[in-house]
């Protein structure tokens, strides 16, 4: 009796497994997306349409852009040096007015980066005002992460995008 039960249980198990296999061809594939699907095929195509990774912005500008560390708006030494040059430009031509555009890299949310971009712009403005430029000659605007200058998705591109640009009004 016991062996019969064992036999039946084994048979059931086999049948169960067969059911599992047999139904596969007819079963509609579950709609789980494979997150890796886009990686291998689409990345190269993308980079070619991105016209390289970097687009030079306003090469003829009188001003130098300055750069920031990730999630920071404090001015690095290299940024201060470039800001001093920008202040000199402003002092040489008293009619010049400038808008400081604050930008961020693509990481983090749209909303937080909008605020971060504004603080980057204001850091530069405050520095220039402290160096003697009249406050009404320097305005600020933040584009957050919406206007990257480098279109890659690595630290190289991000470092170029965490920036203030100085646009003559």
């Amino acid at each position: 009796m016991k062996s019969l039960l064992t036999l039946l249980a084994t048979a059931a198990l086999i049948a169960f497994m067969v059911v599992g296999c047999a139904k596969k061809p007819k079963v509609e594939a579950p709609t789980k997306p494979t997150t890796t699907e886009t990686k291998p095929t689409e990345k190269p195509a993308d980079q070619s349409t991105d016209q390289g990774t970097t687009v030079e912005s306003e090469p003829s500008s009188k001003f130098s852009a300055i750069y920031f560390d990730f999630d920071k708006y404090s001015l690095r030494d290299d940024a201060k040096a470039d800001l001093k040059k920008n202040v000199d430009v402003m002092k040489q031509d008293q009619n010049l007015k400038v808008t400081v555009e604050g930008h961020c890299d693509e990481r983090g949310t749209v909303e937080y980066n909008l605020a971060l971009g504004e603080r980057r712009a204001k850091s530069a403005r405050d520095y220039m005002v402290n160096m003697g430029v009249k406050a009404n000659r320097v305005s600020t605007i933040s584009y957050g992460k919406e206007r990257p200058v480098a279109l890659g998705h690595d630290e190289d591109a991000w470092a170029k995008n965490r920036r203030d640009e100085f646009v003559e009004k």
Partner: peptide, 26 residues
Amino acid sequence: KQVGAKYDLYIMDRFKKKIKKITSDG
């Protein structure tokens, strides 16, 4: 969700974590 250079929308449930991609424009 950002995968490579593509940004697309996904929906998922909180417990079973079934995930579904709903846009594909990147």
